[in-house]
Each structure stands twice: as structure tokens, then as C-alpha cells.
């Protein structure tokens, strides 16, 4: 099996790796980079447990080749520290077995990077990409609301979308 050297930019670091072109990003992250936060749940793009953020957008790393990600900025759950969404997942008991959690958190984080004042249909549209079998989803919904409100509260007043100008 032919292998090639590539450099991926992951969690702020350049990682030079020897991979097959047919290797998925998920396999390379887990087996070569030791970044096991992204999980294989279906390897078919259906469950979202492997979600990582590439250039600010969530991607299912099982349906992306690692080589496609060269030249792009990759962030995995290991690169996310003390974020509002992680704190909210902790506080709201928005996980049980924890296997889908990195994928949910990365998707939700990308959504909140995108916009912190989104409505319920938009949240649903983003989050229905992931499957959680343990919780009732109500816990995850609470976590999203909590993260949104902390993020909005932390914004300087004049940057709040609807705050009256003084």
C-alpha cells in the first residue's frame, strides 16, 4: 500500500504524517495523531460522532479524506478548551456514555461560532446531524441555550445584536 507524506494543520500545530491517499481524516486523526476524541460510530456519515471543525465549519471526518484537509485549519475536541459549550454540556448533564459528545460539542461549537442568536429551527437543523442514544436530547437543548446565553452575556454591550445603542 503506497504511502505519502502530508502536513496537516491540527489544533494549531503542523503535523507531518505518512498516510495512504485513501485514509479518511478520522482514521488519521485517531491512529496517527493520537487524537481519539473524534469517534467512529458508523463510518458512513450518518451519526456525527466523528465531527471535527475544518475552517470553522463542522465536518464528519469519516467522509473526508485526510489529504483533502491539507492546507486547511482542523480543530478537534482536543483543541477546544474551556469553551462555553463544554461547560454547558457539563452543567446540563448533556451526555451519559460520552461517545457522541465530542461530535455534538464540535458541531454545536461551530454553530455558535457561526451565530450566537439563533432560533430553535436553526439549532435543530444543525444538531440533527448527530445521534445521541443515551440522553433525551432535552439535556443537549438546555446546554445549547446555556452556552448561547453565556456567550451573549460575555459580548461587549455594543456588539450585542439587539442592544440599544447609547
Amino acid at each position: 500500500m503506497t504511502k505519502h507524506e502530508v502536513t496537516l494543520h491540527i489544533n494549531g500545530e503542523d503535523r507531518t504524517l505518512v498516510i495512504r491517499h485513501a485514509d479518511t481524516l478520522l482514521d488519521v486523526l485517531r491512529l496517527q495523531c493520537g487524537l481519539t476524541g473524534a469517534k467512529p460510530g458508523c463510518e458512513n456519515g450518518d451519526c456525527g460522532a466523528c465531527t471535527v471543525i475544518v475552517n470553522q465549519l463542522p465536518y464528519k471526518s469519516c467522509i473526508m479524506l485526510a489529504i483533502e484537509a491539507t492546507g486547511h485549519t482542523i480543530m478537534t475536541i482536543e483543541g477546544l478548551k474551556h469553551s462555553p459549550i463544554q461547560r454547558a454540556f457539563a452543567k446540563c448533564y448533556a451526555f451519559q456514555c460520552g461517545y457522541c459528545t465530542p461530535g455534538f460539542i464540535m458541531n454545536a461549537h461551530a454553530m455558535l461560532l457561526h451565530d450566537t442568536s439563533i432560533d430553535e429551527p436553526t439549532i435543530q437543523e444543525w444538531l440533527e446531524s448527530n445521534i445521541c442514544r443515551c440522553t433525551s436530547y432535552e439535556e443537549i437543548a438546555s446546554a445549547i441555550r446555556m452556552a448561547m446565553s453565556t456567550m451573549n452575556a460575555n459580548l461587549p454591550d455594543n456588539s450585542k445584536p439587539n442592544s440599544p445603542s447609547t
Binding site: T36, A38, P40, I77, R87, A90, G98, T101, P102
Partner: peptide, 21 residues
């Protein structure tokens, strides 16, 4: 009173069987 596995699980640090290689 929270959960004992919280930090492991919200950081992606929790190790499941396939994570050992």
C-alpha cells in the same frame, strides 16, 4: 452533585476500547 466522568467526557479525553492502539 455532578458526575465523576464529566471532565473526561466533555474534553474528548475519555478513552474507550478503540482509542487504545
Amino acid at each position: 452533585v455532578g458526575r465523576k466522568d464529566t471532565q473526561d467526557k466533555v474534553t474528548g479525553h475519555a478513552k474507550y476500547t478503540d482509542d487504545f492502539s
